[in-house]
Design a protein around this nucleic acid. Structure first.
Lengths: 313, 313
DNA sequence: ATCAATAGTGTAGCCACTCTAAATAGATGT
DNA sequence: ACATCTATTTAGAGTGGCTACACTATTGAT
C-alpha cells in the first residue's frame, strides 16, 4: 500500500471510472487497473466492484479513500515544508556575538524585533579568538565576529555581512595629560602602562603595531578581554587601553582619543553560512543588525542612541 | 520526494548516521546515500551536512523530517483504515425491508441498538417483487427479503440469514362464519371474496396454490400490498385475505385462522453481500435481527412482545 | 607519522516493478 | 445484432532502486 495506489483509489472514488482516473493521472487504464489490483492484494475485503461497465468503490474502499486524502495532504505539506521553513517570518534565529558587539548591538536588535511576527531571537555570547568565529556558524545562524583591518579575510565558506568599521581609540583616565591632545600617535602612548586583551584576540595586532611603529616594547600590566572591566580599570588609573569607539559602553571617567599613525580600526561582520540567508527570518535579523549598526555608528542613529557617536567623553 | 526518501531523512535525523539508517531499513549505506541525494535534488537548500565523518541534518532537513513524521503517520493510518472500518462497532449499517418485516422487526431492532456504541441504523422501506430483493444488497448493507417455501432459493451471490419461517393465515372479519373452524382448507376459502397482493409479489403464489388445490378461480376484489391496509379492509367486510401470522400488526376486528392443505409459509431472510459480514457492525445488526425474529415468532419472546404469537385475535 | 578502523559516496550491473500496447471480455444502447 | 464503451489480462520495454565493490575522508591508536 503506497501513495500511488492510494491516489488511484481516491481518484476512482471521485471520478467514478478507471478511464477517467487514467486520464487524470496521465497513464493508461491498464496501469490504473494494475495498481488497483496490487492495492486490493493488501486488503482482505473488496475495495471496488463492478457497476455495469464501470468500477466503483465499496464502502471499505471509501473508508480507505478517505484515509488516502490524509496521506496526500501530509505529502503535499511535506513537499512545501522546506519552502515554508525558508519563508517563515517568525522562525527562531540564533545569534552569537563577542561581548562588545553583543552589548552594542543586541539591545537595539531585541527592541527592533519585539513585534509579534518578527523572528524569535536566541542570543548567546561567545568570546573566541579570530579563527574560531567561522566554525561558530555551524552552531548559530548568525555569528557577530570582528577582525582588524589588515587581518586575513573570512574564509569563503561563510558569508560576511559588514556591519561596522569601527575606530579603536585610546582610552585614558579623565584628567590624564594626554587627554589634552585631539589625536594621539604611537609615539605618544608607547611609554604608558597598558591594559590589553589576551593573546590571540583581534585587538592584540593593533597593540603590536603601535609597539612596532614606536620602536619599543610596551609595558603591558593587565590582560582583560571584557571592555566594561577595562573601562573601570582605566578609570581607576590602572593604565591606558585600546577601546572600540562605538560598541564599548561610555564611562564617565574615561576619555577616548583617536589614534593616528597606525591603522586602528576593526571590522564587525555578521557571519553566516550562505544557505542560511535563504531563510526569511535570518534575512530579517541581518537587516535589523545592519540598521542597528548604522545607528550605533551615528549614521542616522535615533536621538536616543546618538550618544554612541560622541567620542569625547 | 516520496515516502521512502522522507523515511530515510527522518531516520537519519533520529539515528544520526547513514550506516545506522541503512541497518534500520535493511539496505546498504549506498542505497541510503542515493536516496538522500535524490531527495536533495528536489530542494534548493542543503538538507544534510557532514559533521566529521558523520552526516547530520541541517535545520531545513529537520523541518522536512518533521513533516515526514506526518506522512508516515497518515500512511500507517491508511494501512489500518480498512481493518478499522471492518472492526468499527458503531459504524453505520443500512437496512432495507419490505413493509411487514419492517413493521414486525424494526421496532425491536431500534430498541435493541439504542445503546451508545451500537451500530448506527439507517432504515429504508423497499417494497419490491421477489427477484428484486438481491440487487438491493448493492444499495443496502442488509436487505430483509421474503420468499415462499418452494420458490427458488436466493442466488449464491448473496448470503441469506434465515430469520423467520412464518405461517400465512387466513384473515377473516370478526364474526365471519368460517371463524368457527380451528383450521381452514383451500376448499373452505375458495368461494370467498379475496383481497390479495399485486401480481409478482411473493404471497401471490400461495393464493394461486389455493385456487389450484380447490380447483377454482378465486374472486379477487382488491389488490393491496400493505397488510395494515388489508386488515382494515378485511375488518370492514371487503373480503378475506392471506396475512402473515407474526409480522402483521393484529387488528381487533380481524381473526386469523391457519390454513391446511397447501404450504402456506414464507421465509423471511436477511440478505447481504458475503463480504459485508466482515464488518463487525453488520454482524451485530444481523445478530440483533435474529434475536428480534425469535421474539416475534414466540421463541423466547419477552412478555412485552408475546402478543405477536397470539394467533386468535 | 603511519596505519587501521570507521563513515559516507560513486559506479556498474542486476533485478524488480510499473508502464504501454494490444488483445480479450463484458455491458450498454441503438 | 452490432457498434461502442469500459475494464482487465498479458507480454514486453524501460526505469529506478538496490547490491557489490572501489574509493575518499576522518578519526584514533601505536
Amino acid at each position: 500500500m503506497d501513495e500511488r495506489q492510494l491516489r488511484v483509489l481516491r481518484e476512482l472514488g471521485e471520478l467514478g471510472s478507471v478511464t477517467a482516473v487514467a486520464e487524470a493521472l496521465l497513464v493508461t487504464p491498464s496501469a490504473v487497473s494494475q495498481q488497483l489490483r496490487l492495492l486490493q492484494r493488501s486488503v482482505r475485503v473488496p475495495l471496488t466492484e463492478r457497476a455495469g461497465r464501470r468500477l466503483v468503490l465499496t464502502p471499505a474502499g471509501r473508508a480507505l479513500a478517505a484515509a488516502a486524502i490524509d496521506v496526500e495532504t501530509s505529502l503535499a505539506r511535506a513537499r512545501h515544508a522546506v519552502e515554508e521553513f525558508l519563508e517563515e517570518p517568525d522562525g527562531e534565529v540564533s545569534v552569537a556575538a563577542f561581548h562588545s558587539a553583543a552589548a552594542g548591538l543586541w539591545p537595539r536588535l531585541v527592541r527592533g524585533l519585539a513585534a509579534p511576527g518578527a523572528p524569535r531571537l536566541a542570543l548567546a555570547d561567545e568570546d573566541v579568538s579570530q579563527e574560531d568565529f567561522p566554525p561558530l556558524t555551524h552552531e548559530y545562524d548568525i555569528v557577530l565576529a570582528h577582525r582588524l583591518d589588515h587581518s586575513p579575510a573570512w574564509p569563503r565558506t561563510v558569508s560576511a555581512t559588514p556591519l561596522l568599521h569601527e575606530p579603536l581609540d585610546i582610552a585614558l583616565p579623565a584628567g590624564h595629560p594626554l587627554a589634552d591632545k585631539e589625536r594621539l600617535t604611537p609615539h605618544d602612548v608607547a611609554d604608558q602602562t597598558w591594559i590589553t586583551v589576551h593573546d590571540g584576540f583581534p585587538l592584540m595586532a593593533t597593540i603590536e603595531a603601535i609597539a612596532a611603529t614606536a620602536g619599543r616594547r610596551l609595558r603591558i600590566a593587565h590582560r582583560i578581554n571584557e571592555f566594561a572591566v577595562v573601562s573601570e580599570v582605566v578609570a581607576a588609573g590602572g593604565g591606558i587601553a585600546l577601546l572600540p569607539r562605538w560598541t564599548a559602553r561610555p564611562h564617565s571617567a574615561v576619555t577616548l582619543r583617536p589614534l593616528s599613525g597606525v591603522h586602528a580600526r576593526r571590522h564587525i561582520d555578521a557571519l553566516h553560512r550562505p544557505e542560511n540567508a535563504t531563510r526569511k527570518a535570518v534575512r530579517t535579523v541581518l537587516a535589523e543588525l545592519r540598521s542597528a549598526a548604522a545607528a550605533v555608528s551615528g549614521d542616522g542613529g535615533s536621538p536616543e542612541t546618538a550618544e554612541g557617536s560622541d567620542v569625547h567623553r
